[in-house]
Simulated scan of single mutants.
Amino acid sequence: MDGDVAPLQGICDLAEQYSALVFIDECHATGFMGPRGRGTDELLGVMDRVHIVNSTLGKALGGAAGGYTVGPKALIELLRQRSRPYLFSNSLPPPVVGCATRAVELLLASNEIAQSMAAKTMRFRNNMTQAGFTISGTAHPICPVMLGDARLASLMADDMLKLGVYVIGFSYPVVPKGKARIRVQISAAHTDEDIDRTVDAFIQTGRKHGVIS
């Protein structure tokens, strides 16, 4: 929600100190974080120190539903026998599997998509910061434009839609009180022109509501 990246290197250090396993939930990292889109562990250079990865097919991989767990063979066998979500879930529809498989193939074939995502993310974050907005997090395509006031976030999101930009205002209880924001999600399908148009719409709307001068 805040566009943060977990301090995974420190977590791995701590786990090794106490002979613990490292489990990460990569639902907001798979497909776009790291040079090849493999996730936070690739981004931070600890792929060989993470033992279990849980993630989704329903976000960046485009499958709309489903997820997966990867880890040691013994763990996977245990999950197949004892995991209630696995035992009592239907198999994924073939089109979902096909879509997600193709997305993974595209990521493995070239780092162009992941690098494009990183460049577009920084373009948006840098331009918004230069315009006077506060963007939470660092280098993550989830870019929360911090506003603090729930009504302001809602009004600005409505005005952005009138300018042809669809963004969502978040406020309590989804986020803490006083931390209302508009959450922007950068996509690989966005062009640089899309990014610039969105920034221009934020500047116009932000000036209207006195957020920036």
Rank of each mutant, 00 (worst) to 15 (best):
L106S: 09
A119L: 06
R84P: 03
I142G: 04
R125P: 02
T129N: 04
E77L: 15
L108F: 07
A64S: 04
G67E: 03
T138N: 05
P141Y: 07
A100D: 02
P72V: 07
A103C: 12
G132H: 10
M117F: 13
S89R: 04
N127W: 01
L79V: 15
L87Q: 13
K73G: 10
G137S: 07
I113L: 11
M122K: 15
S116A: 14
V97C: 02
F124L: 11
T69S: 13
F133W: 13
L75F: 10
K73F: 13
L107E: 00
S136K: 14
I142A: 09
I113Q: 11
T129P: 00
H140K: 14
I113D: 08
Q81I: 03
S110E: 14
S89M: 14
T121Q: 00
N127D: 12
E77W: 15
S110K: 13
Q130I: 09
S89L: 12
T69C: 12
G98C: 08
C143D: 11
A103E: 09
I76F: 11
L87W: 13
P144A: 07
S110G: 14
A114I: 00
L61H: 00
N90D: 15
I113E: 08
A65D: 04
Q130R: 12
F124A: 00
K120M: 09
I142R: 01
G71C: 09
T101V: 08
S83R: 09
A74D: 08
R82I: 06
A119P: 00
E112Y: 10
V96G: 01
G62Y: 09
L106R: 11
P85E: 09
I135V: 10
A65K: 10
A109Q: 15
R84W: 04
G137T: 08
E105S: 05
T134C: 12
I113T: 13
V104D: 05
N90H: 15
K120R: 06
Q130H: 07
A65W: 00
L92F: 03
R82G: 12
E105G: 05
A74W: 06
C99F: 05
M128D: 00
L108G: 05
T134K: 14
G62H: 12
G66W: 00
A118R: 11
L78N: 04
Y86G: 05
G98H: 10
Y68P: 00
P144L: 03
G132R: 11
L87P: 10
I76V: 15
E112I: 10
P95T: 01
G71V: 08
N126M: 13
V70K: 05
T134E: 06
G71E: 08
K120E: 06
G71N: 04
G132P: 02
E77G: 15
R102P: 02
F88N: 11
L61I: 12
G62S: 11
F133P: 01
A114W: 00
V97P: 01
P93H: 09
R84K: 07
A74R: 08
N126S: 14
S116Y: 05
L92S: 05
P72Y: 09
I113Y: 02
I135T: 10
S136F: 15
P144T: 09
K73E: 09
P93F: 07
I135Y: 05
I76L: 13
A119Y: 08
V97Y: 02
S83Q: 10
L106G: 06
M117E: 02
T134P: 06
S116G: 15
P141Q: 03
